[in-house]
Simulated assay, not measured.
Amino acid sequence: MENIFEIKFTFEQKIKENIIEKFATKQGGNFNVFTYHWQCFAWAATIGFFYGEKRKLTSPLADKPFNLNTMRNNNGDKIAQALICLCISKTGSLDILKEPKQAIDLINEYANGGFYYIQKLIDNGENSFNDLEKIKQEIFNREVA
Rank of each mutant, 00 (worst) to 15 (best):
A62C: 02
L106Q: 14
T46V: 09
T58V: 10
L68A: 03
W43M: 03
N18W: 05
F129N: 05
N112Q: 08
S128M: 02
A82F: 08
Y116T: 00
P65E: 04
K14G: 04
E143G: 06
N69G: 01
S128E: 09
I20D: 01
E138P: 00
L68C: 09
D63K: 09
Y117C: 00
M1P: 12
N127T: 13
I4F: 00
N32H: 13
F31M: 04
I79S: 14
K22G: 00
A44S: 11
S93C: 06
E21I: 06
G92N: 11
G76I: 07
K54T: 06
M1D: 04
L97G: 04
Y51C: 08
P60K: 01
K98M: 09
E109P: 01
F41C: 15
Y116K: 10
I96T: 05
R72H: 07
G113K: 08
K90E: 08
D105L: 08
T10Y: 06
V144C: 05
F50I: 03
F31G: 03
Q27C: 12
K98W: 05
N127H: 05
K101R: 14
A44K: 07
D123W: 03
F115A: 03
I7N: 06
I79T: 15
G48K: 08
C87H: 13
I139T: 09
F34C: 11
L86F: 15
K64Q: 15
F49H: 06
Q102N: 14
I107T: 08
A80Q: 07
E138N: 12
K22Y: 11
F129G: 02
K101I: 08
T58Y: 06
S93M: 04
G92Q: 07
N73S: 15
F11N: 06
E143A: 11
F41A: 04
E12C: 01
D131C: 04
S128L: 09
P100Q: 06
I135L: 12
K54H: 07
I20F: 01
Q119M: 07
F9V: 10
T25A: 07
G29S: 15
K78N: 11
G114E: 03
Y116G: 08
A145I: 11
D77H: 13
L121K: 15
E17P: 00
I15C: 02
F140N: 11
G52P: 02
K90N: 14
K136I: 13
P65N: 05
A103Y: 01
T35S: 14
E133K: 08
N73E: 15
S93D: 00
L83C: 02
E12V: 04
L94H: 12
K14Q: 12
N127P: 00
K14M: 02
G125C: 04
Q81M: 13
K101H: 03
I139Q: 01
L86I: 00
G113W: 06
A42I: 04
N130T: 13
Q39G: 10
C85R: 06
I118G: 03
K134A: 12
S128W: 15
I47G: 00
N127L: 10
G48F: 05
P100C: 03
G29K: 08
Y116Q: 10
N74H: 13
Q137P: 08
C87V: 14
L61R: 07
D105Q: 14
T70D: 12
I79M: 13
C87T: 15
A111Y: 02
